[in-house]
Every structure is written in structure tokens, then in C-alpha cells.
Nucleic acid binder design. Structure first.
Lengths: 210, 210
DNA sequence: GTATCCACTTACCAAATGGTAGACAGATTG
DNA sequence: CAATCTGTCTACCATTTGGTAAGTGGATAC
């Protein structure tokens, strides 16, 4: 009952840290005080364990961001909330981002499920950004590129540890706050430029830009 | 003579694509039409092959960016040139960025050399940004955070393939151009804000954003 | 009481892994 | 020609890997 979850959690941490190929079932089992066969009993095979980890991680990741977005006003406040939640997550559960990075490296057969998990949420986010732009709350950019860039900054802060070290930085709370402030100031400068200045808090369909 | 380089190149591609742990010497050898023992003859062990790949990749990466920076006027033009060179590299030799990401995952014993390879160049870049800010060419931000964020966007464009797919994007020349334009517009908006407007100086091509 | 199921174990196994030892062909050198 | 050096190969080897088979002890069902 409990064991399956423990395996899942430990596997998530290990996959994020050392990668799927760098994590053997024996390693994992030893870390949990079990034998490899217990893991295979619960998951059937390493493949299915991997699938479970990827799927659950993607769900967790998306649910946090969706919650943050839904809890705030449309437009800039929502963006701010999502960015804030992202950095909080990057500090609190960096393995979720690590696993997503690992998914990229594994590529297609493995990433299928994760991609399908991310797609609707990202589509919603894209649509939301686009509507903010239509309403003149934000100035116009390709929303997908905004999303990708923002995610890249958050993910990079967690996963590009050697660049961080080469810069004599490490991702503690203070650095995260600086990064968050910088990312927000980038987004603010680019998205709340002169075009979007007249944005009222109205979320109707009024176009304020010329 | 030639073989050693061929191994190095192929290993760089393979390590970037499938990771160090996901690449066996037998795989690598087969791909090159050799036997594993030939690889071991040239590099002694897999560890030393990895070290060679990491070290050479870091050198290549840095040399391209340094060249771009040195070939342009200080201030904003240099930033623009480096960003342009980065995206060009991301398209032309994505494996260099992939390997750097892999270095992060491998962590300390392996990353030591790479970090020491990156550090001086990044320190120069940091100093340069800081001096531009001192001279009023750019508005003030933590230069290290600017560097990290910019690198993250470029690297993310290459390595976060599943997020790209979930967004129905792929990194072709057109997407790279859009990304580059967006990153530059972010940087421009944040760095060439009101504070830095007076930067006309000797560089001749400084732009005013209005 | 016995039959069944559940969570987990010990005992194996075939394949793949990084690595060693030694041979062989071709060029270079004396 | 003999000797050596270089680059490659074949033949092994010990360890690790994911996975199978066959239990074992305890709870639950009837």
C-alpha cells in the first residue's frame, strides 16, 4: 500500500538526479531497504515504473501551475502568480523539473504520455495569453515563445547546475527571488510596454491598442 | 589519426542525444564501424573518453561566443551578436548544448573541468555587462542573472524538446529566428529601458526604444 | 481448518557492460 | 632484412543489468 508510493517517490528523485539509465532497480531497492523484485512486483517492469514516474510528475507539475493561474486575476496578475508558483516549485520539488528534462532526453516513445499531459494546459495558457493580447492587456508577441522562454528560465535555474556554479551562483531562496524578479521584469518590460499601458482590469473584449 | 576525431565527434553526438549512461562503447563502435577495443585503445577508458568530449565541447562552445563578442562593438551590439551566435550554434551544433546539459546531470566529479572551462569566459562576460551598466549603456540588473536567463532560453530551445512538441513548435530556422527576436526584445526592453537611454557614445548604433 | 490472496523474499538467468590480453598487418627505422 | 611501433582486431572475463521462478509468512474468506 505505502510501498508503491515510496518507490514512486524515490524513483522520481533518482531519475531526476541520475537519469533513468543511471538508476538501476537494485540501486533504487537498496535505497528503499527492499529488493529489486519488490519493485518489479509493484510495477511489472522498469519501463512501467518509468511511465508511472513520468506521468505522475507531469500531472503534479501542471496541477500546481494551473492552480496558481486560476487563483488570480486574468492578465498580468495571473502571469505573475504562475511565475511565482514556478520558482516556488523549482525550489520545493526540483525533481519534477528534472524529470521533465529527463523526458526530453528519452524522447518519443517515452515522452508521448508526458506531451499529451502537458498539451491541453499549455494550449489553455497560450489561449489565455492571446486573449490578454487581444484585449490590450499585453503587447503582442508569440504566446508560445513567451511560454517556452519563461519555462526555460525556470527549468534552467534548476537543471543547469554547472552554469550556475561557473557563475558562482546556487539556487537558494535568495537567488530564486532574484531570478524571479528578473524574469518578471523582462516579461513586464516586454509585455507591459507602451502598447499595453492603457490596460484596464476589464476582461471583456475591448481593444485598447491602436 | 582521423579515427580519434571521428570517435570524439560521434561520442559527442551520442552523449548529447542519449546521455552518457545511455551510450555504450559497443553502440558507439558499431556506429563508427569499429570495435569497442579500438575506442579503448585511443582513450584508455570510457571515463577518459567522457572527459575528452566534455572538455572539447566546452571549449568549442565558449570559443564561438567569445569570437562573436569580440567581433562587435561594446554594449548592446555585443549582446545582440552573442545572442545571434548562440542561436546559430543551437541550430548548427545542438550537441554542444546537449553535452553541457549532460554535464549538469553528471555533476561534480565530471563537471569540474567544464566548470573551470566556462568560468573565465563567464566572468569576462559578467564584467563586461557590469561595465556597460556602469557606463549607462544598460540599465542595472544582476549580470549573472542576465547571463543565466539568456543561456537558459537558448539551451531550453534545444533541449526541452517535449515542451516544444507540447507547444507544437520545433526548432527550425524560422522558430529560432522568432525566439531570438523575442529574447532580444526581452533583453532590449529590460536593459535599454529609460535609464539607459542616454547611451549614444562611441558605438554609433545604439537604439532608443520608444 | 483450509484455500486464497497479498506483499515480499531468495535463487537464478541471459544479455550487456566496461575492460584486459594477446595477436596480426602495415608502416617506419636501423 | 630485422626490429619496432601503430592501429586495429579476436577472444575472453567479471560485474551489473532487467527479468523469471518459486517459494514464505501473514491476513482474510468461507
Amino acid at each position: 500500500m505505502d510501498t508503491k508510493d515510496r518507490v514512486l517517490n524515490q524513483a522520481t528523485l533518482a531519475f531526476a538526479e541520475r537519469g533513468v539509465d543511471g538508476t538501476s532497480l537494485d540501486d533504487l531497492a537498496q535505497r528503499l531497504g527492499l529488493t529489486k523484485q519488490t519493485i518489479l512486483y509493484h510495477f511489472g517492469s522498469k519501463s512501467r515504473l518509468i511511465e508511472s514516474v513520468l506521468s505522475r510528475s507531469a500531472q503534479d507539475l501542471m496541477s500546481v501551475l494551473v492552480a496558481a493561474a486560476k487563483a488570480s486575476e486574468p492578465g498580468w496578475p495571473a502571469i505573475e502568480a504562475v511565475v511565482r508558483a514556478s520558482f516556488e516549485l523549482a525550489i520545493r520539488r526540483p525533481e519534477l523539473i528534472g524529470v521533465l528534462r529527463e523526458t526530453s532526453r528519452l524522447g518519443p516513445p517515452w515522452s508521448e504520455g508526458v506531451v499529451e499531459e502537458l498539451r491541453p494546459t499549455l494550449a489553455d495558457a497560450e489561449a489565455a495569453l492571446r486573449s490578454y493580447m487581444d484585449d490590450g492587456l499585453l503587447s503582442r508577441h508569440d504566446p508560445r515563445v513567451i511560454l517556452l522562454s519563461s519555462y526555460a528560465v525556470v527549468a534552467g535555474s534548476v537543471t543547469e547546475t554547472e552554469v550556475l556554479r561557473a557563475l558562482d551562483l546556487r539556487l537558494d531562496l535568495r537567488a530564486a527571488a532574484t531570478l524571479r524578479r528578473t524574469l518578471l521584469s523582462f516579461l513586464e518590460a516586454a509585455l507591459l510596454g507602451p502598447e499595453a499601458k492603457v490596460a484596464s482590469t476589464e476582461s471583456g473584449s475591448s481593444r485598447a491598442t491602436a
